[in-house]
Design a protein around this nucleic acid. Sequence first.
RNA 1: UGGGGCGUCGUUCAACUGGCAGGACCCAGGACUUUGGAUCCUGUUAUGAAGGUUCGAGUCCUUCCGCCCCAGCCA
Length: 567
Amino acid sequence: MKEETTGARTTGKHFIEDAIEADLASGRFDHVQTRFPPEPNGRLHIGHAKAISIDFGMAAEYGGKCNLRFDDTNPTKEETEYVDAIKEDIHWLGYDWEEREYYASGYFEQLYQWAVQLIKSGKAYVCDLGADQVREYRGTLTQPGRESPHRGRPVVENLDLFNRMRAGEFPDGARTLRAKIDMASPNLNMRDPVMYRIMRAHHHRTGDAWCIYPTYDYAHGQSDSIEGVTHSLCSLEFEDHRPLYEWFIRELGIFPSRQIEFARLNLTYTVMSKRRLLDMVEQDVVRDWDDPRMPTLSGMRRRGFPPEAIREFLKRVGVAKADTVIDYELLEHCVREDLNKRVPRVMAVLRPLKVVIENYPEDKSEEFDAVNNPEDPSAGTRKVPFSRVLYIEQDDFREVPPPKYFRLTPGREVRLRAAYFIKCTSVVKDETGAVTELRCTYDPATRGGDAPDGRKVKATIHWVSEAHAVEAEVRLYDHLFLKSNPDDAPEGLDWKSNLNPKSLETLTGCKLEPSLTGAKPGQRFQFERLGYFCVDPDSVAGKPVLNRTATLRDEWAKVQARMKAVG
RNA sequence: UGGGGCGUCGUUCAACUGGCAGGACCCAGGACUUUGGAUCCUGUUAUGAAGGUUCGAGUCCUUCCGCCCCAGCCA
């Protein structure tokens, strides 16, 4: 029954599947309807993607539907711009709500009528306490609250006052409508929670039609009920709210949606709260919500992460109730696994070092056929031009090679990928002693990369012909934070003290092979031996900008790190 | 200290509801290699603790310990 995936062979079903199946078996519900309820006050991140995959995934698994519903009950924080961005992100991830696009604000009138109903049945009252007083009356974790002096207000008076709240007769914050439940409840959410507040703010959908707005607690469950949501799946912090969620539905006698909570996703080396992400955007720590370093879906898209990889990642992460922090490496693994299969290989030199092949004719140039993807023969080959002057990676040459270094070094022969063997004969340096150029010779008999005499080389390096190179800007990204847990900060400092000052490195003057001419934003490549790269929207004709999506796994880097660690 | 949750390899998810604790990521070796990539083998490490029930406990019972969430007119 369960879907088999490449790496995550799952056996048992998770607790939400168990619950749904039990509900179907018992007849509590005869179908499955879910919803994804974002608040349009920021961009979606990978944590939301987990919720999306669960909400849409459970509906799909049990032949049901999933609605998109914007939870827009707080006009002071919400914007249409976010609504549009959220829709784009969900579609990009690969999910579709068809015509079922709803808004909690679309239910404002019904919610108001239900509030009137609760007032009439003596379950809600208008309270004149201010915010500070409400807090005082609420009590503490260990002490019960005190009842509001307005709790016993007669129904007619409540009706009149609530009506006048809506009519705009009172200033912001002057009164609230509260549910009459139990000020002594050990669950603070049940201590007469606020249902409506007076707030003169322009709403992105209802404009200035309302000056009172329902709170999350009063709006969410009823919205679920209106939509016939059977399973309202949300994150753990709402567990305490479930009794209230059920109380409203019961008192109103409406469709009994069931709320089930799961643990939210956390990733190492990043932060996941919208508040913090917004903070980084506003403080210009990053360029915007779609900065490729951000854990937002738009950031990951720009970074070059395929949606399929994100979905596979989410599948492997699983669904449970224990607080979790997933290794960023798992995400990276899924991205590499996906890209390795699908993306064309290409040669690019990020930090160029000039190489002159002394025995290659000055006016000559030729083309080699290079394999586009060794994982996929159907991807074919492409032509790569070769000539006397080339660029190789600075890292691929060492005048004095460290132990286990296989690449080019004076007197040593290596292979230029898909071309010839070359041997370094001499080194040209500037006044400071820095290597500026290499003089090499090539062996014409090794054309294509194999020596007829059977001799082997220890390394194959990538290269780009100077005369044919496309100049590019390349942006290298690293974790936004230095520590796997950004909150692990010294006394008196906060998460921002762990920001990685080198999370972005911009390289200019990079050399790309000419087949990249005309590459469009969003196109992805593997730069051989370097990593996966994606064309950035900042690119202009003849001046491409590439984002590094992920590096390749790098044995040499590990060897170096180990040698360094040893001393 | 009130209430609500959660504790299985370093990380994450499993274990047919009492029957050999398994997979993936990470890590370490090795094979292969025209990417120090990919791929393929091999390997290390876990049931928070103590009692109890039982032929047998990750699963049941008791006690303890630890971690997370809640005192917004945010969601």
